[in-house]
């Protein structure tokens, strides 16, 4: 018995030492700027993903994840220099001016043909954002009612595809450049509803709108309604292995869950759409 315990202890000691050795070890892959890690995000970057549009502060879910990953692949806080990348710069082919980009990029098979994704660092439920008057007029979180609405989504996101598959609205949805424009159209009543990942929906309804309501979220067992966010890297960039390893270790030791709990509101209380 004691032998088994000793072996187990030894094994865990070895495992721990391996872990601590790998954490903080400089990744073998080269970065775009020597000795520095250059992550990118959108400008503006939105809360709760990045706080105050200032990723260097390390506040906000994605900013915090990036600094944790950076530390684990050997780049302490002062060796991280942020770049700005638009959505298109993220997914276009060819060399990048950043090592990886984080901006709620959904992992899809088609995108993988042009770029590489890291492992997913967050799985978002898809939520429906509406205005209070619409709810007061009797809107219920069921698919039949949602079909009749005038929808609007940010183009370029996976929301359009999810909307078509899950709701299949009667009227063609309108499309906008980004979430800010979608929310503006929602505020002025040009659209009735939009589809966002749940954290963003909660943030928009609480902060950006006077009368925003998260009507509901799609059940998390429905893979159509789920979005997995991954970091975007240039196709074939060997850095992806390091990043994946860091993410795996963050999942294993609960760091990722801790960051998530700190920044992303809990989904409790948001009804599930039937």
């Amino acid at each position: 018995m004691s032998l088994v315990r000793v072996i187990a202890m030894a094994a865990s000691a070895i495992a721990l030492s391996v872990f601590s050795a790998s954490a903080g070890e400089v990744c073998a892959a080269k970065t775009v700027k020597d000795g520095v890690l250059t992550p990118a995000t959108g400008d503006p970057a939105y809360f709760p993903w990045v706080a105050d549009n200032n990723p260097s502060a390390g506040k906000g879910f994605e900013a915090a994840v990036v600094y944790e990953v950076a530390a684990r692949i050997g780049y302490p806080h002062d060796k991280v220099e942020w770049a700005v990348a638009t959505f298109d710069e993220g997914i276009q082919p060819g060399p990048k001016n950043f090592d990886f980009s984080v901006a709620q990029y959904s992992i899809t098979e088609e995108r993988k043909k042009t770029i590489d994704f890291s492992d997913s660092y967050y799985t978002a439920a898809t939520a429906v954002l509406v205005r209070k008057p619409t709810v007061e007029a009797g809107l219920k979180p069921d698919l039949a009612a949602l079909k009749k609405l005038q929808w609007g989504v940010a183009a370029g996101t996976t929301a359009g595809g999810i909307l078509a598959k899950t709701v299949g609205p009667d009227k063609d949805p309108m499309m906008f450049n980004d979430t800010a424009d979608v929310v503006q159209a929602l505020k002025s009543g040009q659209i009735d509803a939009t589809m966002l990942d749940l954290p963003t929906a909660l943030y928009e309804s609480a902060v950006e709108m006077d009368d925003g309501v998260v009507l509901g979220q799609f059940p998390t067992d429905n893979s159509e309604g789920l979005d997995q966010f991954g970091m975007v890297l240039e196709k074939g960039n060997p850095l992806v292995a390091c990043v994946d390893k860091a993410l795996q270790s963050m999942k294993a030791d609960g760091t990722l869950a801790k960051i998530e709990a700190e920044w992303l509101s809990s989904a409790t209380g948001v009804p599930v759409i039937k």
Binding site: F87, D88, I91, Q92, P93, T108, E110, R111, K112, K113, T114, I115, A155, G156, T157, G160, G161, M175
Partner: peptide, 14 residues
């Protein structure tokens, strides 16, 4: 233009 943009981001292809 929007349709092309949507198709582009769906396919990650320009």
């Amino acid at each position: 233009l929007r349709q092309a943009g949507v198709e582009k981001s769906l396919a990650a292809n320009f």
